[in-house]
Write a protein that binds this DNA or RNA. Structure first.
Length: 503
RNA sequence: GGCGGCAUGGCCAAGUGGUAAGGCAGAGGACUGCAAAUCCUCCAUCCCCGGUUCGAAUCCGGGUGCCGCCUCCA
């Protein structure tokens, strides 16, 4: 199946064609590991996780590469502030990253390169750039090594030498610098203010690596050029990351890689929009953010993942309690239906044989079309609605002819959708309990036993109801509601689920 | 100052030339010990102005508003 993809480079939605038939190389900019990740980071990972799942489902042989930046100014500053080594700091936050992503059900990329293990490739690339006349070396202050001053240099990329510079972000640098110049200090060491560092001379107290230019470390952008080319070759299919990386990071990546290899570098550039709070970009530097673990302390990971897929990946997505409550409600609604279906199917095993109902065929096609249309996840999620409505109707009359088969077919469809989207794949019957457990601090009366408290009250209420003690029953319902639990009575008995307040 | 994005019902959000998906919330009815759930019914003409077209939320021009990048940033 052909799919279409928005390409930042051409500003158009293009029919995708891999460079090599059946194979796709994809590089996505990962995180700088000096702190816990926020919801914005979660979005990139979830978005490209869906991309990954979809491409594999379509039968492509995908190589997905996502890096960790484990040397950089902020990392060094944080490590110094903590009084710990760079390695211990980065290792800690790489593990924290994995914990967060595992909870969000993001599958691991095939290759996760780190800057510190690619110094050879980085140095080679800088040498190539200089050799081809696109970089220059500027002597720096000698740096003490083993108490001996050691000569060292910076290496810069020469933007002037590279006429196609700016093709991704479409900026004319002279104009670009105009209004921004107040914020950017003039660096007299550079031949041209547009030039950027390929290699930074070591400074006292900083980690460094030996190089042809003396002790130093890589500039920010060169790592991705070098690691992408190493693992995917000089030309590959897809490069992704957040919109904020378009300029200068990705622009510089292109210039460096093309200057070094003479090859095309990435063909399709995918950029995801920001997660915002009150429409303002979520960002560490401004303090305007929630960490993933903050959010997961209050909402089930499935709720966050679902929320992150409710808008198209290129658009901004506004994070709020209300939006999360809405997502939670929808996720619970769906899981509730799935739980009923699973219970019924367990009692009365039914194979999804024969021709699927029309709704399922239509929805299946719509699901794939939506994902192949630039990974339109809101459309994909909408495709689940009609089958779920049909499922609900069938669940109400399981004995009617064909209804069990219908339930089995819809259940199978949701499971296939879950494989692609990474939501609705959990054992449905446990979900509301899981959500309650995660939310226990805010949901239950202080000092209560959480889930046990709910189950106690529910049991007491069952007794009252069987005695037709309606007054006591209603009293208990009110207590439970106070405790954040909604009760509902059915023919099969009383059920409960977390109460979600939505304005 | 340069470059770019967005503006759809109460809220969120699809839709890129043929007469507005989906979610959440709301109203009325059925059902129910009550309350839910469920079922049925109802709830928008797409920021403003002008243009192209038989026909535009969708294309063009001009506004207004919000946001982003140009410094670290997913």
């Amino acid at each position: 199946m052909l799919f279409r993809l928005q390409n930042t480079l051409t500003r158009q939605k293009e029919a995708f064609a891999p460079l090599a038939p059946g194979r796709i190389g994809m590089y996505v900019c990962g995180v700088t590991v000096y702190d816990y990740c926020h919801v914005g980071h979660a979005r990139v990972c979830v978005v490209f996780d869906v991309v990954q799942r979809t491409l594999r489902h379509l039968g492509y042989d995908l190589t997905y590469v996502r890096n960790f930046t484990d040397v950089d100014d902020k990392i060094i500053a944080r490590a110094n502030a903590n009084g710990e080594s760079v390695e211990s700091l980065t290792e800690r936050f790489i593990q924290a990253f994995y914990e967060d992503m595992d909870r969000l059900d993001c599958q691991r990329p095939d290759i996760e390169p780190r800057v510190t293990t690619h110094m050879g490739e980085i140095i080679d690339m800088v040498q190539q750039i200089v050799a081809r006349g696109h970089g220059y070396v500027v002597a720096s202050e000698p740096v003490p090594v083993n108490d001996q001053p050691m000569a060292t240099s910076d290496v810069y990329f020469s933007v002037e030498s590279f006429p196609t510079y700016g093709s991704l972000s479409r900026r004319v640098q002279e104009d670009n610098a105009d209004g921004a110049s107040e914020r950017v200090s003039f660096d007299g060491r550079k031949k041209d203010q547009r030039d950027f560092a390929l290699w930074k001379a070591a400074k006292p107290g900083e980690p460094w690596w030996p190089s042809p230019w003396g002790p130093g470390r890589p500039g920010w952008h060169i790592e991705c050029s070098a690691m992408a080319c190493k693992h995917l070759g000089g030309a590959f299919d897809i490069h992704g990351g957040g919109k904020d990386l378009v300029f200068p990071h990705h622009e510089n990546e292109i210039a460096q890689a093309q200057a070094a290899t003479g090859d095309a570098f990435a063909k399709h550039w995918m950029h995801n929009g920001f997660v915002t709070i009150d429409s303002e970009k979520m960002a560490k530097s401004t303090g305007n953010f929630f960490t993933i673990r903050d959010v997961l302390a209050r909402f089930h990971p499935q709720v966050l993942r679902y929320f992150l897929l409710t808008a198209h990946y290129t658009h901004p997505l506004n994070f709020s309690d209300k939006a999360m409550d809405e997502a939670a409600k929808r996720v619970l609604n769906v899981y509730e239906k799935l739980a009923q279906a699973d219970e019924l199917l367990a009692r009365q095993p039914t194979a999804a044989t024969g021709k699927p109902p029309a709704v399922v065929e239509v929805a299946q096609a719509e699901l794939m079309e939506a994902l192949c249309d630039d990974f339109n996840t809101p459309r994909a999620l909408a495709a689940l609605s009609e089958p779920i409505t049909v499922l609900t109707a069938a669940l109400a009359k399981p004995k009617a002819a064909g209804n069990m088969e219908c339930i089995a077919h819809v259940r199978g469809f949701i499971a296939r959708a879950a494989d692609l989207l990474g939501v609705f794949q959990y054992p449905a019957a446990q979900l509301s309990e899981l959500i309650v457990e995660l939310a226990r601090d805010s949901m239950f009366p202080p000092g209560s036993e959480g889930l046990a408290w709910v189950l106690d009250k529910m049991r007491e209420r069952d007794t009252a109801r069987s005695d037709k003690n309606w007054a006591r029953s209603d009293e208990l319902r009110a207590e439970l509601l106070q405790g954040g639990v909604e009760v509902r009575d059915t023919r099969e008995g009383s059920m409960w689920r977390p109460r979600l307040a939505i304005d």
